[in-house]
C-alpha cells in the first residue's frame, strides 16, 4: 500500500489530507477562513488565516492518518486555479515537505480534483459532471484525453450568485446554507430572469433582479426560494442538454453548491427522465478539501506527473480543459 499527502489552499479552505493508494481517506483536516458578515473572502486575509493554521492542520492530518511523513510516496498540492495569495501558502507547505523529505512534488488542478474525488466516492465511471462552486460553474465531460467543458457560466459562478445575493441581505460568505434553509420555508415563486444561452448560463441579470426584489421589500425567504428555483433549473437544463447530447448515463454533482439538497433533488428528477444515475459527492467532500488533491495527486503520481521543487509555482488561471489526463481513457 502507498500513501500520499495532499495540500489544498485555493480559496477559503486550507486543508491537508492523507490517502492510501486504494482510495481510502485516512485524514482530512481543515481551516476554513470565515469572512466578516456582509463581506466576501479577502484573498490576503484568507491567506494570513491559512498561514497561521498551516502547521496545526498539517500536524493533525499526519497524526490522524497514522502514516509517518517519511512514508509518503509523494506530496501533492493544488497548483490552481484560485486566489494567488491563498494558493501560495499551500505551495510553500508542499514544496517544503517535498524538498525536506526528498519526495516527488505533484501539481494538481483544483477542478480536476473535485471531479476525480467525486468519481471515487460515488463510483461514477464516465459521468457528465456539474461542477458548481464559488470558483466554477461548468458542465464537463471526458473525451479525447481531457475533461472538456460542454457549457459554463458566462459571468458569475453559481456560488458567487448565492454569496453575493446573501451578502446583499447582510449574511457572511459562504451564504449557501442560510439561503437553502430560508428557501425551504417558502413556496412563493417571484418571477426572475431565466437565462440559458445554448449550453451556457448567465446569472448576472438574475442577481440584479433578486437584489432589487429584496430592496423593494420582498421577504428574504421568498427571494431565496425563487433565486434557487431559477438558478438550479438553469444548471439542470444545461446538464440535461449535455446528457442528451453525449448519451452518457451518469451525472456527478461536485463543488461547494453540491451540498444543496434542492439542487440535488432537481438533478435527480432531471436525470430520471434519461435513465441516468446521479452521484453527489458526500457533504463533507463536495466542497474544497485536501482529499480532492491527495486522490488526484495519487492518480497523477502513478502516471509519472511531477514538477521539480523550483518549478512548484501556482497558476491562478488554469482551466481544467487545458489539463491532460493520462490516467483515463
Amino acid at each position: 500500500m502507498d500513501y500520499i499527502l495532499g495540500v489544498e489552499s485555493t480559496a477559503h479552505t486550507f486543508s491537508v489530507s492523507v490517502m492510501s493508494s486504494s482510495g481510502k481517506i485516512l485524514s482530512d483536516s481543515r481551516n476554513v477562513f470565515k469572512a466578516p458578515e456582509g463581506s466576501g473572502i479577502h484573498p490576503f486575509e484568507a491567506s494570513q488565516s491559512h498561514i497561521r493554521a498551516a502547521a496545526r492542520v498539517l500536524k493533525e492530518a499526519v497524526e490522524e492518518s497514522g502514516v509517518p511523513l517519511d512514508s509518503m510516496a509523494a506530496v501533492s498540492y493544488s497548483m490552481g486555479p484560485g486566489l494567488g495569495p491563498c494558493l501560495r501558502v499551500g505551495a510553500v507547505v508542499a514544496r517544503t515537505l517535498a524538498s525536506s523529505l526528498e519526495l516527488p512534488l505533484v501539481p494538481v488542478n483544483h477542478a480536476v480534483g473535485h471531479i476525480e474525488l467525486g468519481c471515487l466516492l460515488t463510483k461514477a465511471k464516465d459521468p457528465i459532471v456539474l461542477l458548481v462552486s464559488g470558483g466554477h460553474t461548468m458542465v464537463i465531460s471526458f473525451s479525447g484525453g481531457r475533461w472538456r467543458v460542454l457549457g459554463e457560466s458566462l459571468d458569475l459562478t453559481l456560488g458567487q450568485l448565492l454569496d453575493q445575493f446573501g451578502r446583499h441581505a447582510g449574511l457572511a460568505s459562504p451564504c449557501g446554507r442560510a439561503i437553502e434553509e430560508a428557501a425551504r420555508l417558502s413556496d412563493r415563486y417571484l418571477r426572475l430572469p431565466y437565462s440559458v444561452k445554448g449550453n451556457d448560463v448567465s446569472f448576472s441579470g438574475l442577481l440584479t433582479a433578486s437584489k432589487s426584489l429584496l430592496d423593494e421589500g420582498a421577504s428574504f425567504g421568498d427571494v431565496a426560494f425563487s433565486i434557487q428555483e431559477t438558478a438550479f433549473a438553469m444548471v439542470a437544463e444545461v446538464t440535461e442538454r449535455a446528457l442528451a447530447f453525449t448519451g452518457k448515463k451518469e451525472v456527478l454533482v461536485v463543488g461547494g453548491v453540491a451540498a444543496n439538497r434542492r439542487l440535488d433533488g432537481m438533478m435527480d428528477s432531471m436525470a430520471k427522465r434519461h435513465s441516468a444515475r446521479v452521484g453527489v459527492a458526500p457533504i463533507g467532500y463536495s466542497g474544497d478539501c485536501g482529499a480532492q488533491i491527495a486522490w488526484t495527486g495519487w492518480l497523477a503520481h502513478r502516471s509519472g506527473i511531477r514538477v521539480p521543487v523550483e518549478g512548484g509555482a501556482v497558476r491562478q488561471s488554469w482551466r481544467l480543459d487545458s489539463v491532460d489526463i493520462p490516467w483515463r481513457d
Binding site: S141, S143, G144, G145, R146, R148, V149, L150, G151, K197, G198, N199, D200, F245, T246, D321
Partner: peptide
Amino acid sequence: VDLRLIKETIVGAHPG
C-alpha cells in the same frame, strides 16, 4: 455566442 456553441460542441464532443 452562436458560433461559440458550435465551437464548444466541436472541442467537447469531436476533439479529434
